[in-house]
Amino acid sequence: MTDRKPPKAESLEDFVASWMKAAAEFWGMMGKADPASKTPSPDTAFTRTAGRMEEFWASSRKLWEASVKAMGEPGSAERLQRGLQTVPDISMRLAQKSLEGFFEFQKRWADHMQKLGAPSEPYRSSDFDPDFLKRLTDIYKKEFQKFLEIPQVGLTRFYQERFNQALKKWNQYQAALTEFLQLICLPIEKSYRLMLDKLAELTQGGRFPDEPKHYYQLWIKTLEGHYMTLFQSQQYTETLVRTIDALNQFLAARSSVLEDALRLLPVCTHRDLDDVSGEIYQLKRRIRALEKGRHDPAEE
């Protein structure tokens, strides 16, 4: 009774053992199926190649047998099981973070939408919710961006890293652009609201304009006022600069990926051209200085 294993582990070990056995038989058959291993032949290029193939199969078989032996040792199956369990773990974590982010987004969005109907003060951009998009960006940065920052390995690690970097910068640029667009649309939204207030006021006073053009003039003047107020705010300047900076960083990251691709083609990259242009520029400057004698008093 005491040496009985739990049924779940037992079945896994059985499964692993039978799978190993089937795989070993397969590799053995593959090795035997090689014609070069059956009949001795004269030393030709073909037989030399066939001999290398046989060695390859033999090595593969040995490696496999060693692996099978290791897997057969007590505890290996459990380790495999734990390893396999990490895959759904990662998936679960990703899904969980996605859902958390989505719910947060939904909540913030709902909060923001509620504010749309609220009365507005003229020429102020103070009811813009700067936290709304910032929170979303934070969620992205904290929960999603790190997956793009997982260290890359192997021969192509630098290429993968640059690709991930471009993807990351693209996401950051999109976040910054969304924030900027939301801010730049705010005066339109506010001017409409203010127009409604003004029209109500005019109607109350019995001064409702007859000409539809007057409404447009009233609106465009209000809109201009809102924009002027917005543009003079520190918040706008910061958002504008952040957006341009994000665009800039994305373009730089994208260029790195494109340069990787261009290296495979017989064309120059921007960097190559800049190097040449820089050298030509320096040479031209020297030649001009020599030709001109810039500080020649006779010229003055």
């Binding site: 003079q232 300047t237 600069v241 900076d245 800039n248 960083q249 373009l251 730089a252 921007h270």
Partner: peptide, 20 residues
């Protein structure tokens, strides 16, 4: 002028590095 305010805040080095 708004241009003066904006240009003071601009990260010009990075712009030039990226765009040429």
């Amino acid at each position: 002028g708004l241009l003066h305010t904006w240009m003071r805040a601009m990260g010009v080095d990075r712009l030039v590095e990226t765009f040429g």
